[in-house]
Simulated assay, not measured.
Amino acid sequence: MLNTQRKDIHLSLSPDQYDDLTSALETHRDGLQQFVKESALGFGLETSYWSHRVAEVQGLLEAVHRLAAGESPDAVKHDLQKLSPESHEHPPS
Results as ranks from 00 to 15, higher is better:
39 S>K: 02
50 W>S: 03
46 E>G: 08
39 S>W: 01
58 Q>W: 05
51 S>K: 06
90 H>S: 10
18 Y>Q: 12
14 S>E: 11
81 Q>K: 14
52 H>G: 08
11 L>W: 11
36 V>A: 00
73 P>L: 09
48 S>D: 13
91 P>R: 11
53 R>F: 00
21 L>N: 04
78 H>W: 11
4 T>E: 14
91 P>A: 07
83 L>T: 05
76 V>S: 06
32 L>M: 06
14 S>N: 06
14 S>C: 03
39 S>L: 02
74 D>V: 09
30 D>V: 01
3 N>S: 15
85 P>A: 09
56 E>P: 00
5 Q>A: 15
25 L>S: 01
46 E>I: 03
13 L>I: 10
79 D>W: 11
42 G>R: 04
45 L>N: 04
87 S>D: 12
76 V>N: 08
29 R>L: 02
45 L>I: 07
23 S>C: 09
6 R>Q: 12
68 A>M: 10
88 H>N: 11
21 L>M: 10
37 K>E: 04
77 K>L: 07
12 S>I: 14
70 G>H: 07
86 E>W: 11
18 Y>M: 12
37 K>P: 00
46 E>R: 11
50 W>K: 01
60 L>Q: 06
35 F>G: 00
36 V>E: 00
71 E>G: 05
17 Q>V: 09
53 R>P: 00
21 L>E: 02
70 G>T: 05
16 D>C: 06
30 D>S: 10
63 A>V: 02
41 L>T: 08
5 Q>R: 15
48 S>N: 11
39 S>E: 02
57 V>F: 01
78 H>C: 08
